[in-house]
């Protein structure tokens, strides 16, 4: 009897164990294809970029790549243009994300009322986000064209300017032109995601604040904002990371010019690696850039988490 029950247990145990094993095998087998893809196209390139940054890699003769004693890093860190392009990138990132966030928030608050046709408005306002960057670049190049562009015409008709502005071609306005085009594209995604966040704020919470006599601004600042903070954190951080690597709009609209006024990190790296054929230096810029982003993302998460409550 005893033996039978022990045997029985062992069989059941084996069966159970083999079911768990099969589950695991199944679970792993589902992930493997995506994982291979990730390793081939991201993990290996990242490792190899780090390695490349310590060697002398020239695009024209790649067969020999000698160790060059941190020469790539030294030449990057000694280059004034590197710091300038970093500063330009930061200016660009924070003005675009800031402006897109503010306009997106305003539109989201407008749409989060009891108006009809909400989905229609939301869909219409989302259209620019679906358009390719390069198309957005050329549409704005045409809007901002010096002699026949509609922007100068309207500004002149309203007597806001006397002379036509050479938007993309003047070092003073080139960055602004790219910022306008970027904000136009990205306001949509901010609005849609903030709106979705606003719709999760519990009605009781808002009512309770109303009962306590909070005014509209107090309700927004103390109730609504903290409840959507995690959404705001996610969407702004994503956009910051995306804009840090913006290339298409710059390359098409200004090519980094005029006189380097819009030469941001992506343009600087592209020039070092593919125009001057110095892949080693390009890799060194890339590694510095990556380290900065990782540090920044960690810090950003920490700072913004302070004003966060969980609605659920």
């Amino acid at each position: 009897m005893k033996l039978a029950s022990v045997l029985n247990n062992r069989i059941n145990g084996n069966r159970y164990r083999s079911k768990v094993m099969k589950d695991k095998a199944f679970a792993v087998s589902l992930v493997v294809p995506a994982l291979i893809m990730l390793i081939l196209t991201i993990i290996i390139p990242v490792i190899s970029v780090v390695r490349m940054s310590f060697f002398e890699y020239n695009l024209l003769h790649m067969d020999k790549a000698p160790w060059n004693n941190f020469d790539n890093y030294i030449s990057v860190l000694k280059d004034k243009e590197f710091y300038l392009s970093f500063l330009r990138t930061i200016t660009y990132v924070f003005s675009t994300v800031g402006l897109a966030f503010i306009t997106g928030l305003i539109f989201a608050l407008l749409l989060n009322t009891e108006i009809k046709g909400k989905n229609l408005f939301r869909g219409a306002l989302f259209l620019p986000w679906t358009m390719p960057q390069v198309i957005i670049a050329i549409v704005w190049m045409w809007m901002l064209q010096t002699d026949y562009g509609i922007m100068n015409y309207v500004l002149k008709s309203l007597h806001l300017i006397q002379e036509n502005i050479n938007w993309v071609g003047d070092p003073k306005t080139a960055m602004l032109s790219v910022i306008i085009a970027t904000v136009w594209k990205q306001m949509s995604i901010m609005m849609v995601i903030i709106l979705a966040g606003l719709q999760t704020v519990p009605a009781e919470l808002k009512e309770a604040a109303l009962m306590d006599g909070a005014n509209a601004f107090q309700r927004f600042w103390n109730v609504i904002l903290p409840s959507i903070m995690s959404v705001i954190k996610t969407v702004t951080l994503t956009q910051i990371i995306i804009n840090f690597q913006m290339f298409g709009l710059f390359y098409t609209m200004t090519g980094g010019g005029p006189v380097d006024a819009t030469s941001v990190l992506s343009i600087y790296t592209h020039e070092a690696a593919f125009m001057s054929f110095n892949m080693g230096k390009g890799a060194a810029v890339g590694v510095t850039w990556l380290l900065f982003l990782i540090g920044f993302a960690a810090l950003y998460n920490k700072v913004l988490s302070r004003k966060e409550i969980y609605a659920d």
Binding site: L265, S266, W289, L290
Partner: peptide, 9 residues
Amino acid sequence: FPAMVLLIA
């Protein structure tokens, strides 16, 4: 990871 960085490798 910036696409430009991956691109070099």
